[in-house]
Amino acid sequence: MGERVATRDAYGNALLKLAEINPNVVVLDADLSKSTKTTAFSKKYPERFFQMGIAEADMMATAGGLATAGKIPFASTFAIFATGRAYDQVRNTIGYSGLNVKIAATHAGITVGDDGGSHQSIEDIALMRVIPGMTILNPADATETEKLVLAAAEYESPVYIRLGREPMPGVFGEDYQPVIGKAVRLREGNAATIIATGIMVERALLAADILNQKGTTVRVVNVHTIKPLDAAEVIKAAWDTGAIVTAEEHSTIGGLGSAVAEVVVQNRPVPMEFIGIKDRFGQSGKPTELLTEYGMDPEHIVAAVEKVIGRKNS
């Protein structure tokens, strides 16, 4: 495990690398560049950076226009505004037209912390998932973020990239290479599978360690691409381990858990449990306090695994 880095910082670094590789990459921001970490890009490549002011709807449709002319726009703002405030622009201009826009949404989930529920996006994955043709990436750490951002630029599709504010422990080494659409098996085990995304991947691994100490081995699968979901890996988990727990920093309505359940019930129904936010808004607090309050600590995952194993065996 590496040092603690926020995925938003990794995004900012990835943009600098991308700028060198691909001259078509441009960046837009809506008066949050210090927070979304696009400032370094804006300083080094001012002509390729478009400050759009506090106007997210305008930003998304402008990004669409840039994409029609062959640019690869990265439109950056907080997840709550990218998907809520500008939903219609993302849906009708970017999604319906199938434009090659990358929506880089930082400050996703409850780990936004102090700002409170108005700024904590718990529904963005659900909103993006129902748009036909939208690709959704939710990296687990800084390394995965950097590599997925680079991959997204080469991936001809509207892409939603979900990023966090809070520094998180590293999960992957430098030689790790994620492939869009391909889930990554991180641990082997046979009692159940934990399918996790984003910051919950590290927590799933901690849960697996606790379970291991108790004599239970679980498979852990990292789903960095929520759409298109790696259905084959999900079905394999159902066949091989017979029970699944999903873990996401998002509402359990419409996110990773729902996506996995849709695949499981159609192919190999097995008992499932869902770790995530249970139909509640967020609130102010420290990220660690909130993760505990909303039932997203490794201990909660352990309890969910034990529960689902109990149902599998009943």
Binding site: D58, A61, G64, G65, T68, N92, T93
Partner: peptide, 17 residues
């Protein structure tokens, strides 16, 4: 197009490009 109010933004994007 079809959802009103978005075209000028799109045009701006084309003009910026």
């Amino acid at each position: 197009s079809g959802s009103l109010g978005q075209g000028l933004s799109v045009g701006n994007g084309m003009a910026l490009a």
